[in-house]
Structures are given as structure tokens and as C-alpha cells.
Design a protein around this nucleic acid. Structure first.
Lengths: 188, 188
DNA sequence: TGTGATGTTGACTATTTGGTCAAGTTGTAT
DNA sequence: ATACAACTTGACCAAATAGTCAACATCACA
């Protein structure tokens, strides 16, 4: 049962922080959503910040591994699978946007611990995307190029596109941007 | 003196919200920074939210007009002036990022009034960039193309690049992305 | 079955939050 | 000079905030 309570807190924290930001996520709401009492929470975590950092690290790694790292473990069609993933709007929560981007925007210049944790996650994300491009080059799906810069550009367009949808309320912004990015990559 | 107090509040609110987000901006801090007492503030604004919305609208319009709209009022070199502006890192606050993007990320899915205000500002920004590209096409600096999508893509790359710097702590991300965008535009 | 470790409960606190208000000061026009 | 509007002051308030704690329950195991 131990992991149960902890995991319920991690899940609820992640959800509340994703929806409201770290500063906007009230402890009382997290506890209600998790169905856990305050004292129990302080048994597992030192404070709100430690719980949020744990939630972010655990849930985001999980998410990136599932979505992106899995592609590198296949045998071929690396590029196509990445394009498919980018094009798949059903997997995206356009209202809440990108969980990582939200927190980077909110916290990286406010708290050094968040800054460091988010930098690690962000760099890992970028490495995974670069790995996909490296495999694509290796497999002759893509001509040899600066895959590091390409992964940077890809993430920038992805994050920017998700932000744009939040700003305009128009999902078309996302699909347009993704197609422009894919066109760019095909023309390298 | 009337405009003085109001303006001090607008400036302080903008700064505090820019640094800490709307939810993280404490009224007490805004008042201290402005050197204005609470009662005075509530004489000029109905509440924190109205004051923040006023600050955002007034200060952001001012900023976009100064940076971007001014380009469209010149006679030529539209494209070059836009590229110069994008390349000018001295004008950017990489630690705090883009004021508009920060607020869109934080508030657009939390409050409908913020959502509407930010959408207007965001759309205006995009229109101004499109106007620059339209003038560039008209002036034969750029071949005829879908300037609307190009403005979308430009803003997405810009916002994404600023976010990336926050995420990685590396300003090179910004300059790399801007050069890739400029290369893309030159190759249209 | 008793004992210590692991986990749970919810009332309690101190502080900070946005917001109110009655009393005061200043400016301005007649 | 007077009167009225424009503006300022800071004490006060209720609600929400993160965090504490002593008592209690449950579990594993000797």
C-alpha cells in the first residue's frame, strides 16, 4: 500500500501542476484529488516543492520514454514514425499545452532547483530526438546533417506551435507548423 | 499627478507579472515597487486582475509597436530590418523570456478574460509580422508566398527559441534557431 | 501475542493572500 | 474663502496558504 499513497500523490500533483502551474497548484486541491490526508503527504515528502519535483521528474521521463524513446528501439522507419507522432493531434492536450514548456516558462527563472531539474529533462528530450535523427541518418532515411541542430529546431517548432495554439485558440496553427517543419526536414 | 500614480501601478504590475507570473505576483510587492498604497490602487482599479489586464494590454502594445510596427513605417529594407531585430540579442531578456508567451502559457487555460486579452495581443503581433513580410514582397525583397503562414512560423520559431534558452540556459539555442529561420526564409 | 516500524488522521498554527473602508488630504473652480 | 471632487492613507478583515504534530491504526515478524 505504501507505493499506492505515494503514487496517488505523484499523479495528483502532476495533474494539478500541469493544469494550474506550480504556484497555482494548491496543496489542498492536490490532497483532495489524491484522496490523501495532509499528514500522510508530509510523511512521504518534505514539502510541496519536493513533491512537485518528484512528480515532474517521474511523470515526464515516463512520458518521453513512451512517446519518443520507443521510436529509437524499432528497426526502421525512424523518420516516418517521428512525423506520425508529430502529426498525431489526438495525443496532445492543446488546452493545457506542453507540461515541460509550461513549467520551464513559469519556474526556470524563479527557482534554481526547478531550473536544474527542468534543464535535465529538457536536455534529455533533446537527446532522444537527436537519437531518432541519428538512427534515421544511419538507416539512409535522412542525408547526413547536423542532427543536434535539427533536434533543437524540431523541439523549438514543436513547443512554439503548442504555445501558438494556446495563444490563438486555433489548432490549425499546430498542424501548419508541423507540416512546415516536416517540409523543411525533407528538403535538407 | 493622477496619471502618475496610475502609471506607476501599471509599470510595477507589468514588471512583477513579467518576473513572477500573474499568480506569483503579490499585490503587496507590486504596491511596494510602485510606492503606492493599497487604497490608492483600489481607487484606480477594481481588483488585481483588472490592473494586470490593463498593464498587459498597455505595455505590450507599446512594446510591439516600438519593436515591430516601426519597421513597416520605413521605406525599404523590411526583411533586413526584421532579421536585424531577430538577431539583436541585446534587446532580449533571456532569463525572463517573452512576456506574452509567459502569460499565454500560464493563463490562457485558466481564465477566460486573460485568454481573450492575450488572443487579441497575439493576433495583433502576428498581423504586424505578416505586414512586414507583405511589404517585403511588395518591395521585391522576398518572392511572393503565403505571408500569413510565414508569420506564423516566424513567431513560433521565435517563441520556441526563447523558451529553449530558458530550458537549456544556453543563448546559443536562440541564435542557432534564428539563423535557421532566416536561412529558411531566404530559400523560399 | 506482543512489539516496533510503517503509515494515517485531522485539528492546529503562522503567515500571506486579495480586498474593504472610514477618515483624511489635496487640487480646483467659483 | 468655500465647497466639492479627486485622490491618499493605513488599519482592518476573511479566506487561503503551506506546514506541524500528537495521537491513532495497521502491519510484519519474533
Amino acid at each position: 500500500m505504501k507505493e499506492n499513497t505515494r503514487q496517488k500523490l505523484i499523479n495528483a500533483t502532476y495533474e494539478e501542476v500541469y493544469s494550474n502551474g506550480y504556484q497555482g497548484a494548491a496543496l489542498a486541491d492536490i490532497l483532495t484529488k489524491a484522496g490523501v490526508h495532509k499528514g500522510s503527504m508530509y510523511y512521504f515528502f518534505a514539502n510541496k516543492k519536493e513533491m512537485a519535483l518528484s512528480a515532474i521528474q517521474e511523470k515526464m521521463s515516463e512520458r518521453f520514454d513512451m512517446l519518443y524513446l520507443s521510436i529509437t528501439k524499432d528497426e526502421d522507419n525512424y523518420l516516418q514514425k517521428l512525423f506520425d507522432l508529430l502529426r498525431d493531434t489526438s495525443r496532445r492536450d492543446f488546452s493545457r499545452g506542453c507540461p515541460l514548456a509550461n513549467l520551464v516558462q513559469e519556474m526556470s527563472n524563479l527557482d534554481e532547483d526547478f531550473n536544474q531539474a527542468l534543464q535535465k529533462i529538457y536536455n534529455k528530450f533533446r537527446e532522444v530526438v537527436r537519437l531518432i535523427y541519428d538512427k534515421a541518418v544511419e538507416n539512409k532515411e535522412l542525408v547526413a546533417c547536423d542532427t543536434d541542430k535539427l533536434s533543437l529546431f524540431s523541439i523549438i517548432v514543436l513547443e512554439g506551435a503548442l504555445l501558438s495554439v494556446k495563444g490563438s485558440g486555433n489548432i490549425q496553427d499546430y498542424t501548419d507548423a508541423v507540416e512546415m517543419l516536416i517540409e523543411y526536414i525533407k528538403n535538407i
